[in-house]
Design a binder for these strands. Structure first.
Lengths: 225, 225
DNA sequence: TAAGGGAATTCATCTGATGAATTCTTAAGT
DNA sequence: ACTTAAGAATTCATCAGATGAATTCCCTTA
């Protein structure tokens, strides 16, 4: 096993901070300590600390040490690297952007793509009927629509969100949600098949709205007591 | 004038990259070059480059050099430091957060704060009548409400957005908008005065909705042809 | 002309030195 | 005992310069 160096080291320490292994305001090991511990030069640790500083995780103070400035409960104010932005990004982004995609798809989709979309809605309906977990089919449905826009750009943006989308699904476990989703998927698929871009857009909006509301509600209630 | 060092250097170079003085994909000066130019040690430049790397502005490649990975036209996909996120942040943030503030203010505001809010709505009405520019009074109104929540946290968040709010006003110059705004301000002030937090929230939502719609519409149309 | 093999370039990491800001310790004075 | 002030120790800031590794450049040779 080769010796741990800059990039790996950065990741390790960043993760530890995010996991709050050092609490907000507490001191990180001194540069020399950490250098000795990991068998690297001081300058390497220094680069790591600078990188963390530039991301806002720590503050380096001459003569004092390096203290943690990251706090999960304050993520809301910092706006950067914050779970609020994550949430805002993922939920609001979808609410804002996917209706446009749906509209575009209604205009641009090829026949076979429309078939796939319709099929996906049907698959999901059957799954829901059998009380099966529909999340992956749900994701597929939305992805198919993005594909059908024939807009590479859109697709790239959307795929960038996959990881977060997966994490997001935890929020969408409300009773009745699945049935609602099935219904909307069918209507959206219909609208696209009918080349009705306006309706596709509106339906997608309505479909995504509650997701956003739920997540945002929970978040704001928490943040502003 | 003292010699330029780490922090200042970081800011200078970051700004230059953001201003696209080096284009996406182009090479930055070598570490030694830059060190010589600014009369600092290589290791200091190295720290700067690492900080930029960790923010996603550059990629450091052994043997090759350091290339710019920041591109304004791609900001949309990277999600960080992007004007899209700026807009999303500011418009959607308001839509999501300010109704909560209004509700909170309705519960928490002191008498004199309610008077100020009511007064602001009235001032704005008069100004609109005289066809004067109402933007600053508009900002004041919203700020007063945030103040009236007595939630330091909320205030801090809100004030962080001032700069962007000012830039935002360019988007809200639609005919009939001002009259609508005046009307809403009055109703919101009323709801708060009546301690009707639910209505305050709903009215604020309705008040902010079109802002968000307009900005987002223009943006998404632009982005996805 | 094409291919191969150094030479030059550029980043990666290390060693170790000096200085600056802060904190800790200790001793003197009240 | 308590306060204060000086010095020691700690910790970051920056520097100079060395070696190694990855890449590119360029010249030689077939």
């Amino acid at each position: 096993m080769s010796k741990i160096q800059y990039h790996e080291l950065l990741e390790v320490i960043e993760t530890q901070i995010k996991n709050e292994e050092w609490k907000y305001g507490s001191r990180l090991p001194t540069m020399s300590e950490l250098a000795a511990k990991h068998q690297v030069a001081n300058s390497t640790i220094r680069e790591v600390y600078r990188a963390l500083e530039s991301k806002g995780y720590v503050a380096i103070q001459q003569g004092r040490g390096t203290i943690v400035t990251f706090d999960r409960s304050m993520e809301f104010t910092t706006m950067n690297h914050s779970s609020f932005m994550e949430l805002l990004k993922i939920t609001e982004f979808r609410t804002i952007i996917e209706p446009s995609f749906a509209a575009l798809a209604a205009r641009e989709a090829f026949k076979n793509e429309i078939d796939l979309i319709t099929e996906s809605a049907e698959i999901m309906r059957v799954m829901a009927e059998k009380n099966q977990v529909t999340t992956s089919e749900d994701l597929r449905f939305h992805r198919l629509i993005v594909e059908a826009t024939h807009n590479e750009y859109a697709l790239r943006v959307y795929d960038n969100l996959q990881e977060e989308l997966n994490r997001m699904r935890a929020y969408t476990k409300k009773p009745g949600m699945r049935e609602r989703a099935v219904h909307y998927h069918q209507m959206i698929a219909n609208a696209i098949a009918n080349r009705d871009s306006q309706n596709a857009k509106m339906l997608m909006e309505a479909h995504l709205q509650p997701n956003s509301e739920i997540a945002m509600y929970e978040l704001t209630e928490k943040a502003f007591k």
